[in-house]
Simulated scan of single mutants.
Amino acid sequence: MIEHLSYGYITLPIGFLVSMTGSALGLLVARHARRQEEAGRRALWLCLAAFAIGGPGIWTMHFVAMLGFNVVDAELLYSPALTALSALIAVAVVACGLLVIGLGRYSVPKLLVAGPLTGVGVAAMHYTGMAAISADVEMSDETSYMIASVAIAVVATTVALWMAWRLERTVSMWLAAAVMALAVNLMHYTAMMGVRVGGTISEEIHGVHSIELIFPMATLTAIVLLLLIFTVVTVPTAEELRTEERLTAIEHEMGPSTGRAR
């Protein structure tokens, strides 16, 4: 028998809150990226936004949810290498999507290209994480649920990319982050509902128990979130940037007059 909440409902709110926080921080960083005129600086901020959305926003939620996944009377081990690869995929595909719509002039055709590509990549992240499982029972995925999860991922990432490039108000971004977190959870559990278990296998399984990955995952997530929060707090607001520009303009206008007076 398959259990999706073997630790009770605790993994649901934890995964949702982490996902919402990462998504919100990513949207806030993306807002700052839009203010950059230089392509190199804009790309740097977009990559940082992808790190927030793809890391805590998507992958950490997947990992937390997988802690509750269990097959009764079966042993499940995880490959650390494939687990880490799934995290890299999540960040990379979100970065690609943000760079496609964020460099140059924003357009709907660019969004319609970036959204599906990113969505398929997020689904690839999920199934790479599933491939990291080594079990002493046969496991497979039902095609209809796989298709549904990919469709949800495509729609969710397309909306997320649109939000990242259009929203300005901080309150709106937090509400959007909650919607994004809900969509990520929906994609994950839709895919997991399609998991089927067969008979036992005689091959030796390799890897570590999920509980052994909690400490490094939690530590890394905490560090990333703290760095992102520090970045968002220290980034100047639009009003501060306008004030700085006005002061610079005033100093520029007063400079020649001061020189002549001397």
Rank of each mutant, 00 (worst) to 15 (best):
L98Y: 04
P56D: 04
G194N: 04
W165H: 15
V232H: 04
I229L: 15
G259C: 11
T200Y: 14
I133T: 05
G129C: 05
V159P: 12
D73A: 13
E37Q: 14
M173D: 01
V150P: 04
L167D: 03
E3T: 07
L82V: 11
A92Y: 02
S86C: 12
V18T: 08
A24F: 12
L175A: 15
A123M: 10
M217W: 09
R166H: 10
V120G: 00
A261E: 13
R41F: 10
V235H: 12
V235A: 15
G54H: 02
P256D: 11
M254S: 05
G15P: 04
W174R: 01
E138P: 08
R260D: 13
M180Y: 03
R246H: 13
I205C: 11
T157D: 02
L44E: 14
L46K: 00
L5V: 09
V113A: 05
T237D: 12
L247M: 14
Y78C: 08
T128M: 12
I205H: 02
V171R: 14
A181F: 06
D141T: 13
S149E: 06
A87S: 06
M254W: 00
T200D: 11
L161M: 11
T200M: 13
H188A: 01
H206D: 10
L112S: 11
M173L: 07
W162R: 15
G255V: 07
L85P: 07
H126R: 01
A43N: 08
S6M: 09
Y7G: 05
V232E: 03
V159C: 13
T128Y: 03
E75I: 13
A49F: 00
H209S: 15
M217K: 08
F230L: 14
H126N: 07
R196Q: 09
V179F: 10
M125K: 02
V159H: 06
F16P: 06
A177K: 01
M1H: 13
L46R: 02
V235Q: 14
L27S: 00
E239Q: 14
I133C: 02
P216T: 07
E38K: 12
I10Y: 04
A132Y: 05
T190F: 09
P109Q: 06
V159Y: 13
T60L: 15
Y145E: 10
A183D: 02
G26K: 00
S140V: 11
L27A: 01
V113Q: 04
A176Y: 05
P13A: 05
L5M: 12
S257G: 05
A52Q: 05
T237W: 06
S134P: 11
W59V: 03
V64G: 01
L98F: 03
A135V: 07
S23F: 06
A151T: 15
A90I: 08
M193T: 12
A160C: 14
P56V: 02
A151N: 08
A74Y: 02
S172A: 14
T219E: 06
A151F: 12
H206L: 12
V64I: 15
A191S: 10
M254I: 09
V108T: 15
T234D: 13
A164F: 03
I205M: 09
V71R: 02
L111K: 04
S257A: 13
T258P: 01
M20R: 00
L82T: 07
G15A: 12
S257V: 14
